[in-house]
Nucleic acid binder design. Structure first.
Length: 191
DNA sequence: ATACCGATTGGCT
DNA sequence: GCCAATCGGTATC
């Protein structure tokens, strides 16, 4: 099999992200994202379908804040909310689609001590449990908005291990739901 | 220029 | 379970 020979590990490429967000999101479960000395294994993600999704920041068209979402897939969209929290998304679909996957939760698999430093009052279990917590553990904030996870060594996502066919692995339990009502919060994909 | 509100979290009842 | 914290973005006047 002639595969790529020199992949850092199994880093997700732009082509991976450049597909419909509803296809990409489930595949992100179990993947590892690394930044600033900490690696997190994604256990819960949520897809936002750009201009088609009333719940998306991109629903009403591009703005200064959402410009990254309208950019290249593989980009990192980090936004500030509630006056104190940062949350991070991976941009998906073709450029201009403005779809993205919010990283809702994960487990720290590397850089535990560093992560503890960043979230001193948290139990190990909750270090990256929640979108703002995950961003904090990974030190993702204003300065990381717009970074290209496919092109820089600072931030990158590594493919999940081949799912175990025999036993139910983390990737097996995927809850998918199209967003029901405009006000509802459906559209979750988690493990 | 001003007003409303949010893709949340942590602490308290 | 409920609620305050805290401020940038977006819409509106």
């Amino acid at each position: 099999m002639a595969g790529q020979e020199d992949r850092p590990q199994d880093r997700l490429t732009r082509a991976f992200f450049a597909r419909p967000v509803l296809d990409v999101a489930p595949e992100l479960l179990g993947c590892h994202i690394s930044h600033a000395g900490v690696t997190v294994r994604l256990t819960e993600v949520e897809a936002y379908d750009g201009s088609n999704d009333p719940g998306s920041h991109a629903f009403r068209g591009p703005t200064p804040r959402t410009r990254v979402m309208f950019g290249e897939p593989g980009g990192l969209y980090v936004y500030f909310t509630y006056g104190m929290h940062w949350c991070a998304n991976l941009v998906c679909g073709s450029a201009g689609a403005a779809s993205a996957v919010l990283m809702r939760a994960g487990e720290v698999v590397e850089g535990l001590e560093l992560a503890r430093t960043r979230r001193p009052r948290s139990s190990d279990r909750d270090l990256a449990r929640g979108p703002a917590r995950l961003a904090m553990a990974l030190a993702l904030g204003r300065d990381q908005n717009g970074m290209d996870t496919c092109a820089t060594d600072s931030v990158f996502v590594v493919r999940a291990r081949e799912p175990d066919r025999s036993s139910r692995s983390a990737v097996a339990r995927v809850r998918t739901g199209p967003r029901g009502g405009v006000s509802g919060q459906g559209g979750e994909e988690g493990a």
